[in-house]
């Protein structure tokens, strides 16, 4: 949950990138890290297995500027994508202010996307959160691959509510900052509204 510090005049929010294994969550953060000014970012931490698969989380703190004299910082987290690490994923979702679901556009990853999406909904529920009430955007990643599924089909499956969604090719940066800005903006609008209630 967000943290407002009147003493240091800072607003800190937590955004989680969620999605199936190898969909490009860590690549999103790596691209953001590589393109952000050194004074606006902290160190990127990756807790990985020996084979570069995220074990607990990746973490990147970035500052997007000031609003009314408050430095506005976002703590970006990814979750481990592999099914095996569900307990870790649940932990990272605690206190989340906004969620990005990164879907892998490849046809053979459709089932993995669906399974991951369902685990997102269920893990949020266990923290008393409802995805429909949280700031939430979808990113369809790997749009450059020849086996990418039609966008309209992905939208039908994952986005019946019509939340903001973006096409992306994370290694080149396409769609990466659009996704981040969209979710960050929703988080601030939600904080301003301030009326989100957890469901028991």
């Amino acid at each position: 949950m967000s943290f407002i510090n009147y003493s240091s005049r800072e607003i800190n929010c937590k955004i989680v990138y969620y999605g199936p294994g190898l969909c490009g969550k860590t690549t999103n953060l790596q691209y953001i890290y590589s393109k952000t000014n050194p004074e606006a970012k902290g160190k990127m931490i990756s807790l990985e297995t020996g084979t570069e698969r995220t074990l607990l989380f990746d973490f990147l703190p970035i500052s997007l500027g000031e609003i009314r004299g408050f430095k506005t910082r976002f703590h970006l987290f990814t979750v481990p994508g592999q099914v095996f690490y569900d307990a870790s994923r649940k932990l990272i979702l605690k206190g989340v202010d906004g969620v990005v679901f990164v879907a892998d556009s490849q046809v053979e990853r459709l089932d993995a996307n669906i399974e991951s999406f369902e685990s997102l909904v269920n893990n949020l529920k266990e923290h008393g959160e409802d995805l429909e009430k949280l700031p939430f955007v979808i990113q369809y990643n790997k749009r450059d691959l020849p086996n990418a599924v039609d966008l309209s089909y992905l939208e039908e499956v994952f986005n019946p509510r019509g939340v903001q969604s973006f096409e992306a090719v994370a290694p080149t940066g396409q769609g990466v900052f659009d996704t981040l800005k969209a979710v960050a903006k929703q988080v601030l609008v939600e904080l301003k509204r301030g009326d989100r209630q957890k469901t028991p």
Binding site: I4, Y6, I11, R68, K185, L188, V189
Partner: peptide, 20 residues
């Protein structure tokens, strides 16, 4: 008391913030 900082922030502030 907690909500006071956000009551000062307008929708335009947020739009401006992301315009940059």
């Amino acid at each position: 008391e907690m909500k006071s900082v956000f009551s000062e922030i307008t929708d335009d502030d947020i739009d401006d913030f992301f315009g940059l």
